[in-house]
Design a protein around this nucleic acid. Structure first.
Length: 598
DNA sequence: ATATGTGAGT
């Protein structure tokens, strides 16, 4: 009896007793279906079978197999069968199959069924085919909240928080009510954009509706506050949460550790009923990024069951401190201990290599990623593009970009900023246009930063800087970051329009941001405008206190104007403040250490 | 029946 049931079963299924059990129970459903006199013509038992098989990805292929058997018997699927089939193709990553299913669904009229169309939206969203998802969404006559949520969470997952939030605003104006799913997705979008204030206002909406008791919503709130830097609010939400699960604890552990409050993080870790690897990794990551990295290494040695991610925390900790040799040492240790290296291991190492332009190492790591097949994933792909372009090998970066099977915004940004890095302004603009017109993606702040940089690199483009800044604000609704502002200031300085730059600082609301005033001072140095330079210098000292670099820059400018009395007055002032010229430092020294290691 | 949350890349 068992033998006949197992005939034709996938070998992989037979290895796991648990899976074998579920396989047998599924067969019971099938036997039930065929035991009935009319069973062979009835869609319902088939649908039940397909539904069970489509629940997990290991049996999804069988679900579609059963579906095709059903079709061969001349039985037409109903809406529920189709939903299950879409889910199965989502699980399997069978994009083409899903698209064919979509065609069939349009043809057979099931597209009018809101469950079916919503399932297709989430299918497209999962694979970041947002044009397909959005086009389908607008065609649904009566989308329900789930239809909205599918698209919203798709955008959030695909790194397009602006589009997600725009949809939520639209949903707010409709007669449908946002639910816990809408709120959790919105909170994740806030995290991605670092919008603490919006996060707070969503929090108050949640309280108004009374959804704060939902575990997932509560967890998202804790995470949002933690990642937006408001540890106290995160702890407050945590304390008020009655229903706590592992994610709740991990979120608050992360909120404290991420913001450098290690004692509290450790205390929470001890209080936690069942800490898992993620809990430990949260603390570990906090220490590795903000604390003493030696403490992090010790933590790694002592923590129970460290994962690849645990090791990655330390590696990225070293990389963020420009300690590539130690990172490579740990990388070697991982290899020795046979710990699996994932996409993040490679991307961290590559980031470090890019920072030092250590091409030999980069090529080596590239080879390793090819061996493991990780070179085509978007995380490693974008890191490779970045590494090669920072090593001056734009053509290598281009060829990697060209063959990446699925490019997300990070990949595009890596290539665009790669061009910008190498002064290839026209290519920046070409790729930017391609991104805007020929992809489903929307540029973000990082994309625009490269575009503005490119405008500053090419005389023929420099008049477009203001245009792109405005487009960024008006068309895409983004708030320029201090980096954009600084970039514009440099650009305007090159055009000899530092007065415009000074005006821009106030216009963008960065009047009290030292970084942009320093950019202005630098721009004045380049174009020799002493008047604005004095304003900028005064502002920097007002905001940040005494700053040696400011004195040096200003004194150089006085010198180039032949105002020697001012120069000596300034030098005297510097001596009084106890400033001394520091010895130079070059990355070549670090490179030598790497070479010895090599 | 369809959709959600903790680590991590430009």
């Amino acid at each position: 009896m068992q033998r006949s049931l197992l005939k034709g079963t996938k070998k992989s299924l037979l290895r796991q007793p648990q899976q074998l059990h579920s396989f047998l129970s599924k067969n019971i459903i099938r036997n039930y279906a065929f035991g009935r006199s009319d069973g062979a013509k009835d869609v319902t038992p088939w649908t039940n079978l397909i539904s069970v098989l489509a629940r997990c990805s290991s049996s999804s292929e069988m679900a579609l197999f059963e579906a095709s058997r059903m079709r061969k018997l001349g039985i037409k699927p109903n809406s529920y069968t189709l939903v299950c089939m879409i889910r199965a193709s989502t699980n399997l990553g069978w994009i083409f199959y899903g698209q064919q299913l979509h065609c069939y669904i349009i043809h057979s009229g099931f597209i009018c069924n809101v469950f079916v169309s919503t399932a297709i939206i989430s299918f497209y969203s999962k694979f970041e085919l947002f044009d397909n998802a959005h086009n389908l969404f607008v065609e649904i006559l009566h989308p329900n909240v789930v239809s909205w949520n599918s698209l919203v969470s798709g955008y959030v997952h695909g790194g397009q928080p602006h589009k997600a939030l725009a949809l939520v605003r639209e949903l707010d104006r409709s007669d449908l009510r946002p639910d816990s799913f809408t709120f959790s997705a919105s909170l994740v979008a806030c995290v991605q954009l670092g919008l603490l204030k919006l996060g707070r206002s969503i929090h108050s909406k949640i309280l108004k509706i009374g959804l704060e008791w939902n575990v997932v919503v509560g967890n998202c709130l804790i995470d949002m506050y933690g990642k937006c830097g408001s540890t106290d609010e995160a702890i407050q939400v945590f304390d008020e949460t009655i229903d706590k699960d592992t994610v709740t604890w991990n979120s608050v552990v992360g909120a404290t550790a991420r913001n450098g409050r290690f004692e509290e993080a450790l205390k929470l870790l001890l209080q936690m009923p069942a800490p898992d690897t993620i809990s430990y990794n949260e603390v570990l990551n906090g220490i590795a990024q903000l604390g003493h990295i030696e403490d992090a290494v010790r933590f790694l040695e002592e923590m129970p069951s460290p994962s690849s991610s645990s090791w990655n925390c330390i590696i990225s900790g070293y990389i963020n401190r420009n300690r590539l040799p130690e990172a490579l040492g740990l990388f070697a240790k991982m290899h020795l201990k046979d710990i699996e290296m994932d996409q993040f291991t490679y991307s961290s190492i590559l980031r470090g290599i890019a920072g030092l332009s250590a091409l030999t190492w980069g090529t080596l790591i590239h080879c390793r990623t090819i061996k493991t097949g990780l070179n085509t994933c978007s995380v490693v792909g974008s890191a490779l593009i970045d590494m090669y372009s920072k090593c001056g090998q734009v053509d290598k970066a281009e060829s990697i970009f060209g063959v990446l099977p699925r490019k997300n915004l990070v990949c595009w940004n890596a290539m665009i900023s790669g061009y910008a890095h190498n002064g290839n302004a026209n290519q920046v603009m070409r790729l930017f246009e391609q991104l805007v017109t020929a992809s489903d993606l929307q540029p973000d702040g990082i994309t625009f930063l490269s575009v503005l940089q490119a405008c500053g690199q090419d005389e023929g483009l420099s008049h477009l800087g203001t245009h792109y800044l405005e487009s960024m604000i008006r068309e895409y609704g983004m708030d320029p970051m201090p980096e954009h502002c600084s970039c514009m200031i440099r650009l305007l300085g090159q055009r000899g329009e530092v007065w415009k730059a000074e005006w821009l600082i106030h216009e963008l609301g960065y009047g009290s941001c030292g970084l942009v005033w320093r950019a202005l001072l630098g721009a004045c140095g380049a174009c020799g405008d002493l008047k604005v330079a004095e304003v900028a210098a005064a502002k920097i000292i007002e905001l940040e206190g005494d700053n040696e670099l400011v004195y040096v820059l200003l004194s150089n400018m006085y010198a180039s104007h032949g105002r020697w009395s001012d120069v000596s007055a300034l030098r005297e002032l510097m001596r009084k403040r106890g400033f001394r010229k520091e010895a130079g430092f070059s990355w070549i020294e670090v490179e030598n250490v790497v070479s010895t290691l090599n």
